[in-house]
């Protein structure tokens, strides 16, 4: 099927603070072992983490490019202090790389240049999409809470504008950002003296309710779901709406296998039910959710008819 062949599989930026070697090895394995079309590197959560992996950017990008994988640098999702601002300015000044903007400061630097818009940019409607397209945006990853119904309109409009669309289909769901670091707070520290304690939690820090129920996941200034987004059943419908790229958000378990499963579903080699069963066995140790897509509570799992 022509439509399927055009669909791209992407690896989103690593949201958690993994040691630099772990990140590098992760990307090397992606390059060597799985057929993905695009990988987003770059730190999107915390400017303090940037110096640790920055030195590996070139090496990783070279390896991925050699495997015929597009490399896109994602910018910080929250830009506030001087350090954050300098990081974004520096990345956006580099004419030789592709960039995904995650806040309006990046949009300023990238005005008139071809770039992607990230999921933190709040592209909810066709008006916003038209504006961004005029500013140079050619590819947009939609916010995770956007319901499938809204994708119909956005998908139709994207074709007129020559913009391509992407959506996250796997991994913990980004739910909120803050100026405060909740990882530091959990250890009775503040952001300025955090000692990068977030490195202890490769899939984030689990928060449970007082009733003992797993609820949310803390990742520095970010709050994510406890549940793991799984839209493997919805991808067909999303393709029909005009979504042409599907993003897997890295978790610390075997993402190679996860990516292979999604690739095989896109290639029609296995069906969604089989992929889902295998993801449940080998994926993140958390229940699946797909509620946002179906306009239900985001934490819910809606059975497919």
């Amino acid at each position: 099927m022509a439509m399927t062949a055009l669909s791209k599989l992407t690896i989103g930026p690593i949201l958690f603070h993994w040691p630099a070697e772990q990140k590098r090895d992760f990307y090397f394995r992606i390059a060597d072992e799985v057929q993905v079309d695009r990988v987003y590197i770059g730190e999107v959560i915390c400017g303090k983490r940037v110096p640790y992996f920055e030195q590996h950017y070139e090496e990783v990008a070279r390896r991925l490019s050699a495997a015929d994988i597009d490399v896109v640098y994602s910018t910080l999702s929250e830009v506030m202090i001087r350090n954050d601002r300098q990081i974004v300015a520096k990345l956006c000044a580099d004419e030789s790389i592709n960039i995904e903007a995650n806040d309006a400061s990046a949009l300023k630097y990238l005005a008139g240049k071809k770039h992607a818009a990230g999921p933190f940019l709040n592209v909810y409607n066709e008006w916003t999409m038209s504006h961004l397209a005029r500013n140079g945006t050619t590819h947009i990853t939609l916010p995770p809470e956007l319901p499938g119904q809204a994708m119909d309109t956005l998908g139709a409009k994207s074709k007129d504008l020559g913009v391509t669309l992407e959506a996250q289909v796997y991994g913990r769901i980004p739910l909120a950002l803050s100026a405060r670091c909740y990882h530091a707070r959990a250890h009775d520290r503040v952001k300025d003296n955090c000692q990068l304690v977030c490195e202890e939690d490769p899939d984030g820090l689990d928060l449970s309710t007082l009733a003992g129920e797993p609820f949310l996941t803390v990742n520095g200034i970010q709050t994510l779901s406890h549940t793991c987004l799984n839209l493997v059943h919805e991808m067909n419908g999303m393709q029909a709406k005009g979504i042409s790229a599907f993003r897997l958000s890295p978790q610390s378990h075997n993402m190679i296998e996860t990516a292979q499963l999604f690739r095989r579903v896109l290639n029609k080699e296995i069906d969604a039910a089989e992929a889902s069963a295998r993801l449940a066995e080998n994926g993140l140790d958390a229940p699946f959710s797909n509620g946002f897509y179906h306009q239900e509570d985001g934490c819910r799992w809606v059975e497919n008819q």
């Binding site: 999702s77 929250e78 933190f120 709040n122 909810y124 916010p143 995770p144 809470e145 769901i173 739910l175 909120a176 950002l177 803050s178 100026a179 405060r180 949310l216 709050t223 779901s225 509620g291 946002f292 306009q295 239900e296 509570d297 985001g298 934490c299 819910r300």
Partner: peptide, 21 residues
Amino acid sequence: GMMAEGRCSLTNYITGVSTNM
């Protein structure tokens, strides 16, 4: 509010009603 305004889907995650939308 503790979260960055316009960047919070916590309510939607557990109620199905979105702060942003």
